[in-house]
Design a protein around this nucleic acid. Structure first.
Lengths: 239, 239
DNA sequence: CGGCTAGTTGAAGACACTCAACGAGCGTGG
DNA sequence: CCACGCTCGTTGAGTGTCTTCAACTAGCCG
């Protein structure tokens, strides 16, 4: 069994949006987004700030390849990672003059940037943005539930389930044969913590506990095997 | 000084979206949304379920008048209120066959319902939906920060500041003369708690503490005077 | 090998939760 | 009219989960 989720065949446009695990993948296939030349294509290395908080708002972006994380900071340094985005997802939209959240590449990434004029001119592009915003709003709703009401253990379980394409969601088919699955965790413990609204120690403890209980196994930090997906699913609080 | 925020002159389309306090108002002015007859206008009493979780997805909605709250439940009964919406805001969009969150009227409310075909046919409507989704995504980002990283006291302070139009946000002008303001709290303590991701007791304690410290004063539960808006603002964690 | 980063684990403490009692306000009905 | 029940809010006491602080380990690179 592969430890690398990227070997699984699923494209961003077929997965129900709120369980889209595209951002968990390593180097990813090009997104289905048509780029008719109006959008400037930009490439960034890993951990590069694409948008800083309070940057003047010039463009909206589409992720073409790779993963992007959206975050916000409080003046005293507390950080919240708001969204984890994969190919097809959009970011940088604002009704304000400035961006209200930062965007950073998780790995090497390619994005397309569209200024307001380009967007206004292309109706297909507008529709695509609208569709994506809908799915991302669903994901944000789910995440608000996680942040507001779930325990640390449930948060970490939910996080891990989201890494497994097609599982844990409404359209989950249930276990198919041996119910194990390998996933690549491309975030540090600190980043997972900032995403889940807990501390890195709590994340670490939750991982260790799940490992001790036989739900997970791993030797490398970033290559985790979920031994029993259904059991993990029952720990998310959603079922 | 009035205890009723509705007396203040501000329309939904001029307020920066993430600090839009339209949902804090009582009976509200009609929204600027053009209703060209394609959308069915629906009216509901207070505390009426407009959408149940897992309802088949038929329409997208625009709030015309009144306030709507969007929420999700876990199977064990834990609830999270995800969004509080006012005139101009949209809800019910989904890429799925079913709605993934519930919508309930806070007071008497009028909404316009558009099915997919109506939306596809009207480009202005699409644009309006897209613009609103942008602002609501910003609000969801802000709220994720609140839920993930703020203390109970900061959450309640943020909640109260959001009730005050034009204050607490980026475009905050600072105190103008005597820095007091009356607001109408049209949610129960339980609802505030479910919105802020804490318990009703914690909400109550936070209110009491702020009152004891002289930041707030109130005799009725739903009519609160913020005695010193700037001081409250400094308690939100955002400044 | 030393220094650095990332992760794990332990001990102690704080913040919010749970459970419970009590009080205020309101509508109903005797 | 007042008693009653009901809902909603407040407050207290005790508990628990998660945080904080700190020590320690593993892996990596010069």
């Amino acid at each position: 069994m592969s430890l690398d989720a990227r070997s699984l065949d699923h494209s961003a446009d077929r997965i129900p949006p709120k369980f889209d695990a595209a951002w968990s993948l390593g180097p990813s296939r090009p997104s289905p987004v048509a780029n008719d030349g109006q959008g400037r294509v930009l490439s960034f290395d890993a951990r590069h700030m694409i948008i800083d908080e309070a940057d003047p708002a010039r463009c909206s972006y589409v992720v073409l390849e790779g993963s992007v994380m959206i975050s916000k900071m409080l003046p005293d340094g507390r950080r919240q990672i708001i969204e984890l985005l994969g190919p097809g997802d959009v970011f940088g939209m604002t009704t304000n003059r400035v961006h209200e959240s930062a965007a950073e590449s998780l790995g090497p990434v390619r994005v397309a940037a569209y200024d307001a004029a380009a967007l206004r001119a292309d109706q297909d592009l507008q529709l695509m943005f609208a569709e994506r915003m809908k799915s991302q709003i669903c994901a944000l709703h789910d995440h608000a539930m996680l942040l507001g009401r779930k325990t640390a253990r449930e948060r970490v379980s939910t996080f891990l389930i989201r890494l497994i394409p097609g599982r844990g969601g409404g359209g989950c088919t249930g276990p198919v044969g041996k119910d194990a699955c390998g996933v690549t965790v491309s975030l540090t413990r600190q980043e997972i913590a900032d995403y889940l609204g807990i501390t890195l120690e709590t994340v670490s403890r939750a991982f260790s506990q799940l490992k001790r209980e036989g739900v997970l196994s791993y030797s490398r930090h970033d290559a985790v095997t979920v031994t029993n997906v259904c059991r993990l699913c029952r720990l998310t609080g959603a079922h």
